[in-house]
């Protein structure tokens, strides 16, 4: 039986969600100056030898940013790749500071909602076994 197979991603629904918060999300994405000043304020970035992957702006650009750029036309594999960024690489502690005022945790939380709308979310039975750092 193929009942295990995941349903196809509903791009139109993702698009609708993206449009709903276009004002705050898309505008903020386009006004991120790519200056990395937010990096130092994220403890996960510091805990990973300043690995760029853990910079707040990197996490947003490579999750929500890509969703907007592709206008929601993504597949499940793509959402799975985002899953790691928005759940594992950010704990939504809201400590990041951006001089332009870009609300990184708000955007990461929104990317999580979009993943969840398509049934993509951490499976706490399996994922919780891994180290969070």
């Amino acid at each position: 039986m193929t009942s295990q197979a995941q349903p196809a991603v509903r791009s139109d629904e993702i698009k609708r969600l993206l449009d709903r918060k276009k004002d705050k999300m898309k505008f903020q994405l386009s006004h991120c100056m790519r200056c990395t000043l937010c990096a130092e304020s994220c403890f996960l970035f510091k805990a990973h030898d300043k690995d760029p992957q853990y910079m707040p702006s990197y996490k947003v650009i490579h999750s929500l940013g890509k969703l907007y750029r592709r206008r929601g036309k993504v597949d499940r594999a793509f959402l799975e790749s985002i899953k790691k960024i928005v759940w594992k690489n950010c704990v939504l502690c809201r400590r990041c500071y951006c001089p332009v005022g870009i609300d990184i945790p708000g955007m990461i939380a929104f990317a999580r909602s979009i993943c969840r709308s398509q049934g993509v979310h951490p499976d706490f039975e399996g994922d919780a076994q891994q180290s969070w750092l």
């Binding site: 903020q28 386009s30 006004h31 332009v100 870009i102 609300d103």
Partner: peptide, 22 residues
């Protein structure tokens, strides 16, 4: 129309964020 628009939106965003640097 570009990211230089931060000159304007800087002010909006700073009102929007809920943290202490708003």
């Amino acid at each position: 129309f570009t990211k230089l628009g931060h000159m304007l939106f800087f002010f909006f965003y700073r009102f929007l964020v809920g943290t202490e640097y708003s």
